[in-house]
Simulated scan of single mutants.
Amino acid sequence: MTELDDAAAARERWVRSPRGPLALVNAQRVDQPQVVWPVPGQWAPATGGLTVTAGAEDGVVVDGVPVDGTVLVAGDDAVVASVVAFPDGRAGTVAATGGGHTLRVWDPAADAITRFARIDRFPASDGFVTTGRFVPVSDHAAPGHVLDAAGEPLVVAGTVTTSIGGQTAELVAVRSAPYRGTQRLQLIVQDGTSALPESDPGSAYSMGRFLFLDDPGVAAEVELDWNRLVLPPCAFSYQYACPIPPPSNRMSAPIAAGERHPLDIDGAVFH
């Protein structure tokens, strides 16, 4: 098994996992006291996260302590984020979004996990490994940002210039979360394969895909292995907002590499 095979297997384990995208059954912004489907409790906005009001009979547990009254659930912008457990194995986390907070509900027995079969991929090819030049944002210029579909800013780290399919592109790179202790860059791209599967059987996910690179931290040559293009979480669940590729990252050249679509047990594309 190659290293790419290992990475592909790890991706499929992740999408099926209890915190993978298939398990996200609701992502509800809480900006006033309200209930949140499909979990118990009354939820309300609070400084640092949300509060939940529940009785002992509701079976809500926050950070290992059963709730009987009103408790703060710290968001992921706190020093230590809270984890919520609900009956039937569901769990909750609180995400900071747009100046407020969203309750995310995860269900390890979600229907989507049962329906999911595999991630369809293009065959790997050395022809889709290119080199590029990373140039960081100038220390004297504002870094700027790219907005995702929910309006959340993604901080621009710099640009990567590369040639692929006879096209030269200067791609905007945003900062990504570290991976195994290594700082990373993220390219959010569309290409000539980005189309609805009904209109093009050789397509990849229409909203675009992600390519992650190690961040050299300075201007440097980088390798772009397009076989490592991956689907965004929104390809698996409508509960996610898809980051929108910047105009410069929308390429006409087809990149027939990497992940294409998630497929269900009948061989159909999820959505």
Rank of each mutant, 00 (worst) to 15 (best):
E3W: 13
L4H: 06
L4A: 10
D6P: 01
A7S: 12
R19L: 13
R19F: 12
V25K: 00
N26M: 09
R29L: 08
Q32G: 05
V36T: 04
P38A: 03
P40N: 04
A46I: 01
T51E: 00
T53I: 02
G55V: 13
G59K: 13
V61M: 06
V61T: 12
G64I: 05
A78M: 00
A85Q: 15
F86E: 03
D88F: 08
P108A: 07
A112S: 07
I113A: 10
D120N: 12
A124Y: 01
T131Q: 15
F134D: 06
V137S: 02
A141L: 08
A142W: 10
A149M: 04
L154G: 05
V155Q: 12
V156D: 04
G158N: 05
T159M: 11
T161R: 07
I164W: 01
E170T: 13
L171V: 07
V174I: 12
R180A: 11
R180S: 14
T182Q: 11
R184M: 14
D191K: 12
P197V: 15
P197W: 15
S199R: 15
D200K: 15
S203W: 13
M207K: 08
G208A: 06
R209M: 00
F210R: 08
F210A: 05
D214T: 07
P216R: 07
P216D: 04
R228Y: 09
L231M: 06
Q239T: 13
A241V: 01
P243W: 07
P246E: 15
P246Y: 15
R250K: 12
A256Q: 15
L263C: 07
D266K: 14
